[in-house]
Design a protein around this nucleic acid. Sequence first.
DNA 1: TTAGGTGCAAACAATTTGCCGTGTT
DNA 2: AACACGGCAAATTGTTTGCACCTAA
Lengths: 130, 130
Amino acid sequence: MRNTVQRDLIYKVVCDSSDHPAAETVYSRVRAVMPNISLGTVYRNLKLLVSLGKIREIPLASGGSRFDKTVMAHAHFRCRLCGEVTDAELGSVDALADALRRASGNEPESTEIMFTGVCRKCVGKENKAV
Amino acid sequence: MRNTVQRDLIYKVVCDSSDHPAAETVYSRVRAVMPNISLGTVYRNLKLLVSLGKIREIPLASGGSRFDKTVMAHAHFRCRLCGEVTDAELGSVDALADALRRASGNEPESTEIMFTGVCRKCVGKENKAV
DNA sequence: TTAGGTGCAAACAATTTGCCGTGTT
DNA sequence: AACACGGCAAATTGTTTGCACCTAA
């Protein structure tokens, strides 16, 4: 595999983002630096970086995915009001995978834990402007 | 909200399915009984049933969602070789949500745990026909 | 030199929506 | 009668792909 400025930039943008950006968001941040880059390249490289294990993909029930610089197993929380995705502090996510392996004989390779609800900041905002 | 034969049937099909079907799969099973039903109706009612909390939606990283009759919090395992989604036996999924609530102040309402890897039946099949 | 990568646009897949007719209440 | 809901098809959204040109190795 060849090194390209595009891929390096896409990787850097994800690493510099703490907000779990969607592919389109990565695209617009990357375009701020390299205006001619194409959306296809962003998707291609995000997918590639995921399969290389350098970044992580977080699929949402509302459609689409978010991307995360942190590869280490951890959990996420998504507020259904403001849509923000944050890291959830939970010890022992790995312990779950171990428990599954022992109980079922299946071989888990990655674990995605997603909580959905209302975040601290949005509590009480229901039925008001989002 | 009105009761309709379509919605009842869609709900029944999901409840009678133990294989976590995709929307298209629900559609084809429903059509076996009611050939004129439209795909839009299936999507509309699946979404409605999810928002009523009568069934559960499982988003996949590979795109699309699966649907599950079991509303109670539990975990899933998806084999990346055969694609099958099965229930993962894990005690105390609720305990995780409690831990998150205590630690962060966010209010989790639903929890989705997805393991991806290679299932017992597919171990050793890598690089062979899928 | 040359295989792999990019840009672009068209193709795709999954899902949602607008419109209008119909069956329930 | 009023209106929620379904059928149908078009529209959207998110993502992938074919192709011709370009560029790192």
